[in-house]
Nucleic acid binder design. Structure first.
Lengths: 346, 346
DNA sequence: TTTTTTAGTGCAAATGTTTGCATGATTTTT
DNA sequence: AAAAATCATGCAAACATTTGCACTAAAAAA
């Protein structure tokens, strides 16, 4: 009457085949010192009985897990969800699972999460640090616990760890040059939070291009926003309209602000791209749907996730060999020229 | 010389306090039969030594984990990333972690994932089944293994399990009625894949409204798409233009197709909302950025995730009490009227 | 006072897998 | 043919925690 619906264990297989549990374990982990014949016998039986290892027991004994912690500010941001999608795809193929956390840009929560990941023996961690994060002790600690780490998007010089980034400086430079080549003379920039490296770089790339082409740089042509929202973009664009001359080209740090600028300028009778050209950043879905479509920089978010997972797993699996050297990978961005900046078309 | 950087265990605490490991364990799990005084002593020592339980050992022994499996078709879809965000937020607060998988709408992969979750003793599973999924044995098996399950968005009558959905029928009905009240007489529908229940319901809601208001329903005014992409939306809208009369109102099954319809109709000289009113579904970011802004149905994705996590965790924790009754929760949607359908404004 | 109950703690087993070492069998070398 | 080397497998411990049961001491009931 008692239905002991117990899990099939390695011992059951062993008993069924008159072998020891050790042998079964070795077959399952492809130990070299096992003969081909027993390998076959065991594998057949394993299939027959529908057995699979208990990952928890396995982790418990080996002190290794197959779970990668991913920490990002928010999941429901286009960029991050694409990165995560890339991570998941690669990790799954390699037999890893990903556990996801949102820091909501809170330093406290971020340290909490990282601590917990360390505690639960994560195989590795992929993180995009939050805006508040200025100190990196929590991440350094991971290293001491021998847990590989990869940073993406937002990184820091302070930290010796692998990084996957795009070259924001160059991408922004290229975007600016593109506008210059379209004939823009009075360029403006709607910038992201200047406490964040990548947004600093985007501003720097913008400046560099102006300098290179001997165009004047003026402070009032740069409007910083906190979160690059559509609303903030509108305010920034409206502020830009107060300048004389009104800018004839705007390099925006993302597509929402670009969309906002497009709207505000148009509503004020400024033809796009005729009187002012606009380029965004990130290639969000909206950028190809607006009329005119918004030129932008494709940030290859999905690929970024893929690469992050790849170098992390590489580090996890090479750990025994102690070849822990850090890589910094720069993902290629692509300038996408569309209606909002392409004057030749019109 | 040998730096045994070993983990602090429950035994270390026990030894330091001349107590048994059992007592420490009981303190940590708030066992009632422990005196307040020892509770305090232990907790203090735990803090002092910076100890925390090894979650793996704990899971191993107790056969319980704190990890919730989340399976969705793709992470990088606005809707899903919002749902996941809601799940993460609630789960984290309750001390659970979420492990995420993408099925890419493949039935095989979905069963694989579910099998693995079963195998790794997930505390519970939240899933949005893929398009290919017609059979639900893999999910039923979860129930047999006593793993609570919550479905979201796409569900099935076939399966006894908790569900979190929006009332697509009603939402679509309301959207249609709204257009009718704006004076539309020849209504069209750009539909989603009719193998999927929710898209069937949206079509049904559309039909119901026509019927109710005694407007004729014609097959050629309904265009089904496979994935509701922007491109498909354009094709559908172009096809609608071939009808006579040309529709003066379009209820779209999502915002991308609505955006496409808006563009196509405008490009053909049909004023929006004057000559044709358009309403989308889901309240994607684009819908509030396009000009005119697109009316839509807010699907409360974030809230959906929150609720899904809530009822799942409730089931997980009530499991011992065997009160496994299934809930079906219908999240309220909200009609958002904007420029694309609001004729009074213009 | 004696018995019964209750409260608080300890003992020890059990969980499923991995792995260092030992062992026995076979093959190779001398 | 003996010794050495190699191969394939088994033994048993170890991992950190939880939990049923037992036990002691104190409190309550008799």
């Amino acid at each position: 009457m008692k239905k002991k619906e117990a899990r099939i264990t390695i011992k059951d297989i062993a008993k069924a085949l008159n072998l020891s549990a050790a042998t079964i374990s070795r077959v399952l982990s492809n130990h070299p010192a096992i003969s081909e014949s027993t390998k076959k016998i065991v594998n057949d039986k394993v299939k027959e009985m529908g057995f699979s290892l208990d990952p928890i027991a396995s982790s418990f004994r080996s002190k290794k897990t197959k779970s990668i912690g991913v920490v990002c500010p928010r999941i429901d941001i286009d960029f991050h969800s694409k990165v995560i999608s890339g991570i998941e795809e690669y990790a799954y193929k390699q037999g890893y699972q990903i556990t996801i956390f949102q820091s909501h840009d809170s330093y406290i929560k971020e340290t909490e999460i990282v601590q917990m990941l360390e505690n639960s023996l994560a195989a590795g961690v992929i993180i995009c640090p939050g805006l508040e994060t200025k100190r990196y002790e929590h991440l350094k600690k991971l290293g001491k616990s021998n847990i590989p780490l990869v940073l993406y998007d937002r990184t820091s010089e302070q930290l010796k760890a692998s990084k996957v980034i795009i070259n924001d400086f160059e991408a922004s430079y290229n975007a600016t040059v593109h506008l210059i080549q379209q004939g823009c003379k009075n360029l403006a920039h709607i910038a992201g939070n200047q406490n964040v490296d990548i947004f600093k770089s985007r501003l720097a790339g913008f400046k560099k291009a102006l300098e290179q082409y001997k165009l004047p740089f003026q402070e009032q042509f740069v409007k910083e926003t906190k979160n690059l929202t559509y609303e903030e973009g509108k305010e920034a664009a409206e502020a830009l309209l107060l300048n004389t001359p009104i800018p004839d080209g705007i390099v925006c740090a993302n597509d929402y602000t670009a969309a906002a600028a497009l709207k505000v300028f148009r509503n004020n009778g400024i033809a796009i791209p005729g009187k002012a050209a606009i380029i965004g950043f990130s290639n969000y879905p909206i950028s190809s749907i607006l009329e005119p479509q918004i030129s932008t920089i494709d940030d290859s978010a999905y690929e970024m996730g893929l690469v992050a997972a790849k170098i992390l797993i590489q580090q996890i699996e090479d750990k025994e060999m102690q070849v822990l050297d850090y890589q910094e990978i720069i993902i290629k961005t692509k300038l996408i020229v569309r209606g909002s900046s392409d004057r030749k078309q019109n």
